[in-house]
């Protein structure tokens, strides 16, 4: 079995999907931990958040992790598109009547659409925060780039489209939630990690993760929006 054969194999593509996906789940946890600091809108909160943002953009190990994350996103997206194209080809003529709901969950059947929503969100998210953080324009506070204010402003009354931004953010988190509910346990399945005793636990953890993480993410802009009304 040649190496090139292995890389072209459908299963290898699945491993890439699973590994990158599960890695991104870890990233989400880290990101969420940072974001939760935004609930603290006081001056100390602002400082702490800006220090955290500074640390995340400068500390070498974190930088390395961030490159890994970009790679994971890239792999996940490119691989996902490749798989989707292949899967379309595998059924050139579709069914006249197909009752997908009879045998599979909605999210499992719509990972591509969900992923696309998340990708669109990801791009705009990067533009709104990541780009501003790295390339400005951004103010300073206590000698640090003031990302905290950027966020507050973005979801505050100064931004005429803040309501829309919040709605988009929440919608994206819904998409993320459904994506995770299927993706989390699916990743384990793709890696062959299934066991009659432990799999129910993984499934439950996946459900918890898929509901919990996006809910917490979404609650932040909603909170920021309402306290500034």
């Amino acid at each position: 079995m040649s190496n090139s054969g292995i890389l072209r194999s459908s299963l290898a593509k699945k491993y890439v999907m699973a590994l990158s996906g599960l890695f991104l789940c870890l990233f989400l946890l880290g990101h969420l931990a940072g974001n939760l600091q935004l609930f603290n809108t006081s001056a100390e909160g602002q400082l702490a958040f800006n220090e955290y943002a500074h640390f995340m953009t400068t500390f070498p190990l974190v930088k390395l992790l961030s490159y890994l994350t970009y790679a994971a996103v890239l792999f996940h997206v490119v691989d996902g598109i490749a798989l989707t194209i292949q899967n379309r080809k595998a059924r050139p003529t579709g069914y006249v009547k197909e009752k997908g709901s009879a045998n599979a969950s909605w999210s499992s059947r719509n990972m591509g659409i969900l992923g696309t929503i998340i990708l669109v969100f990801f791009v705009s998210h990067m533009q709104n925060f990541w780009y501003v953080m790295h390339f400005g324009p951004i103010g300073e506070s206590d000698g640090l780039k003031d990302l905290h204010t950027v966020v507050m402003t973005f979801f505050g009354p100064e931004n005429g489209l803040a309501g829309l931004a919040v709605a988009g953010y929440v919608l994206a988190q819904f998409a993320l939630g459904f994506h995770l509910i299927h993706g989390f346990q699916s990743g384990f399945q793709s890696l062959g990690l299934r066991h009659s005793k432990y799999s129910p636990l993984i499934d439950r953890a996946g459900l918890l993760f898929g509901i919990g993480v996006p809910t917490l993410f979404a609650s932040i802009p909603v909170y920021l929006f309402f306290i500034q009304l």
Binding site: R8, S9, S10, K13, K14, L83, Q86, N87, K89, A90, R91, G100, N103, A104, S105, S108, R109, M111, H182, Q185, S186, Q189, S190
Partner: peptide, 14 residues
């Protein structure tokens, strides 16, 4: 299996 042109598994469980 791949040569035959079957699609990839996305674990829908259908």
């Amino acid at each position: 299996m791949d040569k035959e042109g079957f699609g990839n598994c996305t674990n829908t469980g259908a």
